[in-house]
Computed example of a mutant assay.
Amino acid sequence: MSEHQNPTHSVELLRTATNRYVARNADGAEVAFGRGEGLLSPVELLLAAIAGCSAIDVDTVTSRSTEPTGFRIGASGRKITEDSGGSRLADVNLSFHLAFPDDEGGRKAAGLVDRLVRLSLDKYCTVSRTVEHATPVEFETEVRVGGGPATTNR
């Protein structure tokens, strides 16, 4: 496996209230999420990220031929609890529902969809490939109490 030098992606998460957060990227784009009415949960955000990554791959290529008349992707997964007590998603599924005009461009775009979806999931979608490859997650903590010094752990 060769790894190419690619930019690092990052977001900053800010707590706005109990169980309410905003994730912000370096360009200032934001998404609110958390636990509660009107919010996507972190698990739902993960499903949206997987679906969104493949959506971009498919949309970029098919829209060169024509604009879709319908473009919807359902993303689902079943939360399971492992013997260790930890939880994760299993049986993650993407369901593509696309429609194109009945003309030459539409037929061309429609004919590309299955191949594009497979390429996205097998090669191009960074999000689904990261999940499939069980990428380790590392962390560090810095905690302050009052005006005292920070305690940092890795």
Rank of each mutant, 00 (worst) to 15 (best):
E3I: 14
H4M: 03
Q5G: 03
Q5Y: 03
Q5P: 01
P7T: 11
T8Q: 13
T8E: 13
T8P: 00
E12K: 14
L14A: 12
L14G: 00
T16L: 02
T16M: 01
A17N: 08
A17Y: 00
T18F: 01
N19E: 11
V22W: 01
A23M: 08
R24L: 01
R24P: 00
A26K: 14
G28Q: 10
A29D: 13
E30M: 11
G34Y: 02
G34Q: 02
L39A: 06
S41Y: 08
S41G: 11
P42T: 02
P42S: 02
P42H: 07
P42D: 05
V43L: 13
V43W: 04
L45F: 03
L45Y: 03
L46G: 02
L46D: 03
L46E: 07
L46S: 03
L47Q: 06
L47N: 05
A49T: 10
I50N: 01
A51N: 02
A51K: 04
G52K: 03
G52W: 02
S54N: 13
A55C: 04
I56K: 05
I56Y: 12
V58Y: 04
D59P: 00
T60S: 09
T60P: 00
T60E: 05
V61M: 09
T62Y: 01
T62N: 02
S63C: 13
T66G: 03
F71P: 07
R72Q: 14
G74R: 11
A75H: 07
G77H: 06
R78M: 05
R78P: 01
K79M: 12
I80G: 01
T81H: 08
T81F: 03
T81N: 03
D83V: 11
D83L: 11
S84D: 15
S87H: 09
R88T: 15
R88V: 05
D91Y: 02
S95F: 09
S95L: 10
H97N: 15
H97L: 02
A99C: 07
A99T: 15
D103Q: 04
E104K: 13
K108A: 12
K108G: 01
A109Y: 05
A110Q: 13
A110C: 05
A110Y: 07
G111V: 13
L112H: 08
L112P: 01
L112M: 15
V113K: 07
V113L: 07
V113P: 08
D114I: 03
R115W: 03
L116Y: 07
L116H: 07
V117R: 04
R118L: 06
L119G: 01
L119D: 10
L121K: 04
K123S: 11
K123L: 06
T126L: 02
V127S: 09
S128H: 13
S128Y: 08
R129M: 10
R129E: 08
T130G: 10
V131W: 13
V131T: 06
V131A: 11
E132Y: 00
H133V: 00
H133A: 14
H133E: 12
A134C: 10
T135K: 05
P136C: 08
P136G: 10
V137L: 15
F139R: 12
T141Q: 10
T141V: 13
E142K: 14
E142R: 15
V143E: 12
R144W: 12
R144S: 04
R144E: 11
V145D: 08
V145E: 14
G147S: 14
T151G: 00
T151Y: 01
T151C: 00
T152W: 00
R154G: 05
R154M: 00
